[in-house]
Design a binder for these strands. Sequence first.
RNA 1: CGAUCAAACCC
Length: 245
Amino acid sequence: AALYTSLIDALCKAKLGKEGFRVFESMQQHGSTPDLYTYTTLLVGLGKSGQWDLVRTVVADVKRAGFTLNVVTYNSLIDSLGKAGQDEAARRLFAEMEQSGVSPDVVTYNSLIAGIGKVGSLEEALELLETMKTRGISPTVVTYTSLIDLHIKAGNIKVVWKLLEEMNLRGLKPNAVTYRALIDGFCKAGELELAWDFYLNMLDMDYPPHLFTYKSLITACHKEGRADKMQELFENIKQKSYGRK
RNA sequence: CGAUCAAACCC
């Protein structure tokens, strides 16, 4: 079953959810029984490609096969629903999960926060952060990056500072993804100076800047007519590419 | 040992 799971996983990641489903059907014809890993992998693929009818069918199959959904399966479904903007369905599933006695973990909350924030319920997203903390589930850098990204895009810079401070207090360091969210967010908000500070910060931390990070910065520099900074950026980029082996 | 979370190109 592990072999089939890997195959289905690869197909789904290649955006071939349909193919994944076909392999899933054929594995059963060949006498191999899917386990919960197989089902979860398949559900992720189907969710990503928006095939909710099949998702429902497969979930019913899982239950019929006598499996109890575990935390990873629930997390996967909640995440897919959130990404599809189906925040109500995600909340319902979360409730169902708790009723079934499956304890949410940090990934559950991170998925919920991202999904609910996506539809604009920033307050609720922040409340979820509080809830998870009171329940003894420690937020991670992913939790904070997700919230920072949501708030910076909404123009709530004050909240962004608060989140960064809170991260600091908890001993969590921004990682490369956090920096990218900050830089891109500040660029789009027209806060070039702030974006620039974080950019320098990121270089100090030895995080390799991404091409897209440069692109954000260049666009912002251009909009604000900061030819000087653009020049500096180009120098940086040149140095980096020469320094590479 | 094989499954789930945040940013970024296009949207």
